[in-house]
């Protein structure tokens, strides 16, 4: 296996609760991201899945350096960047771009979209004016829009077209990694497929790596080579998308995939139901964080944090995951 483009090692993000003298005692923090490790393979797509509050969006913010990490390392192409500043941070930001769910809110309504796409190019300060407008025209073409679209304003486009514009802006500086945070959730079904295909084309054309965050397991399954499953700030399972999809090893992953809606009325996949509510990330359960909702929980689950076990299919953090036979 080639060296990963992005290597995340035991990443942590704790938010201390806002307090005063009458508030909860010291040490009261939200464990938003706890010991999260994963790799984005060069040229591949890593899916980050899990339900609201599992820490996937916080992880994206940490990777984009929009928030400071509490602990752990982010290695990009072999270099640690979690504390990078100045030119090093600028170089990193240039290489790691993002496309978010709602393109309308990330585009200024009073700005022609040509200018919006040119913005990162101008900020980089390497191209002449003519080169920039040439590049903007090229980018528009690449994402499937007409070149004269540059003179229009965001409200003159449909949701799908605006997402194309956001993608054009995201790849303007030829980044190597693009973080896709729910890139098609706001779009209609017929438009979703267009955007997903476009993303795949761009990946092939420019050798991009993607980190795809989505709650739609069908889309993640379709797009990703690898997958990381998060629950309450922790990684519970990670492995190749196909393998995890075919035989999930962690009980949470099983429950998650069993909730995917059937693709045909005759298919009624057996549902695994989770018990009880999602615990609070302020006081996560002891031992295995999933134990309060796990159908198989035993005494040991409350006592020890399960280590990540290589099951042959994936790496799963469960006391009852069967390790792969040593060959």
């Amino acid at each position: 296996m080639t060296a990963p483009l992005l290597d995340v090692v035991r990443l942590k993000k704790h938010y201390p609760l806002p307090g005063g003298m009458f508030r909860r005692g010291p040490g009261s923090v939200v464990h938003a991201v706890e010991d999260v490790s994963f790799q984005v393979p060069s040229g591949g797509t890593l899916g980050l899945i899990g339900e609201s509050g599992c820490g996937k969006s916080t992880t994206a913010k940490l990777l984009l350096r929009l928030e400071d990490v509490s602990d752990g390392a982010i290695r990009f192409d072999g270099t640690e960047v979690q504390r990078a500043t100045g030119p090093q941070l600028r170089a990193y930001r240039r290489n790691v771009q993002a496309v978010f769910q709602d393109p309308y809110s990330s585009l200024s309504p009073r700005r022609r979209i040509g200018d919006a796409i040119a913005e990162p190019l101008i900020a980089a300060g390497e191209l002449t004016k003519e080169q920039i407008s040439e590049r903007v025209a090229e980018l528009l073409r690449v994402v499937g829009l007409r070149e004269d679209a540059a003179n229009l304003y965001p409200h003159e486009f449909s949701g799908g077209q605006r997402q194309r514009i956001a993608i054009a802006r995201g790849i303007a500086l030829r980044p190597r990694l693009v973080i896709l945070d729910e890139p098609v959730s706001a779009l209609d079904v017929s438009i979703r497929a267009q955007i997903l295909n476009l993303l795949q084309d761009l990946q092939e054309r420019y050798g991009l790596s993607y980190l795809l965050i989505s709650h739609d397991l069908d889309i993640v399954s379709h797009m990703c080579t690898d997958v990381v499953v998060m629950y309450l700030g922790r990684v519970v399972e990670a492995g190749s998308m196909k393998a995890v999809r075919r035989s999930p090893q962690h009980p949470y992953t099983k429950a998650l995939f069993s909730s995917v809606l059937p693709a045909h009325p005759d298919r009624r996949p057996e549902r695994i139901k989770l018990l009880g509510p999602l615990p609070s990330p302020i006081n996560p359960p002891s031992g295995c964080v999933f134990r309060t909702r796990c159908p198989h929980a035993q005494a040991i689950c409350a006592e020890q944090v399960p280590a990540s076990v290589d099951t042959g299919v994936s790496r799963a953090a469960c006391h009852f995951a069967t390790p792969a036979a040593v060959s």
Binding site: S190, N197, Q200, S221, M223, V260
Partner: peptide, 18 residues
């Protein structure tokens, strides 16, 4: 046809409505 079929491991392209 535009729905990614999670049941299968299809890494192909999705059919779109132009």
């Amino acid at each position: 046809a535009a729905i990614p079929q999670a049941q299968e491991d299809r890494q192909g392209r999705l059919r779109t409505i132009e």
